[in-house]
Design a protein around this nucleic acid. Structure first.
Length: 235
DNA sequence: AAGCGCCTCAACCGCATGGGA
DNA sequence: TTCCCATGCGGTTGAGGCGCT
């Protein structure tokens, strides 16, 4: 395969990438590394600017990128981190391996923004009725079919000792007690699982590198969700 | 079948930031 | 310290797909 170096002043292409351009970009990033994007754009013969090459690589071509639908767990993480950090898409993306800032930004705009607006409206109304709002245990839209399909582990008994609590929640207790952060998580889950007024029937806990979420069903058969502070905040 | 509007998402644009000369 | 350039980031755009009439 012979590639032709782009000439200075040559008109740059825009719009959707072609398969051949992708192949060229992969070849040259493999050879030269994922830096020096202007240089890669020039020597590869791809008639694109360096910025465009970088974006294509980061959002589509780099290894280990996830292309499928965003899971319920990922959605909960996005919701929580957006609540915490705002529109810091790149920062949020770093907490979701394989996802890009662009993907999360788009997902937020197309799926979550309206959901959040609806929830804010609902909370506003609830707040007016109850006189206060429980920050940690807000109701959310919840896909019950997904919940019951098996990805979420049903839990009938959340009482008992610390290890039993973790096991009951579907965690291997030994797997979450090997670092200071994990010890915090262990304590938090133990404390949470003893709160029978809030969690009774089912629970699903999700630990990521930056925060811990859970979704559960309360004694009134309403789905609820909650979060620990971020693990860094737990120190 | 055609026209229209809405939605999604890949890609672009412009500004901010960081590092080297 | 200043300037320049490459890179990073968030907002925006627009093409294409899909559903509705």
């Amino acid at each position: 395969m012979v590639y032709r170096v782009a000439m200075p002043g040559e008109k740059l292409r825009k719009g959707p990438w072609h398969e051949e351009e992708d192949r060229q970009l992969i070849t040259f990033v493999t050879l030269l590394g994922n830096r020096k994007w202007d240089y890669i754009a020039r020597v590869s013969g791809i008639k694109r600017c360096g910025k465009s090459c970088r974006l294509r690589w980061l959002n589509y071509l780099r290894p280990n990128i996830k292309h499928g639908d965003i899971s319920t767990e990922e959605e909960q993480i996005i919701l929580r981190l957006h609540e915490q950090w705002g529109n810091k898409w790149a920062r949020i993306a770093r907490s979701l391996p394989g996802r890009t800032d662009n993907e999360i930004k788009n997902f937020w705009r197309t799926h979550l923004r309206r959901k959040m607006q609806a929830r804010e409206q609902e909370n506003f109304q609830c707040g007016r009725e109850d006189g206060k709002q429980d920050f940690l245990f807000q109701k959310v839209d919840f896909d019950v079919q997904t919940y019951e399909a098996g990805e979420h582990k049903p839990v009938d008994d959340t009482s008992g000792t610390s290890n039993a609590s973790l096991d009951a929640l579907g965690f291997s207790s030994s797997a979450v007690t090997n670092s200071p952060y994990e010890v915090r998580f262990f304590d938090w889950v133990t404390e949470l699982s003893s709160d029978q007024s809030k969690i009774r029937h089912q629970g699903d806990y999700n630990c990521t590198e930056s925060c811990i979420s859970y979704t559960a069903r309360n004694s009134d058969d309403n789905d609820v969700w909650g979060w620990s502070d971020s693990i860094w905040d737990m120190n």
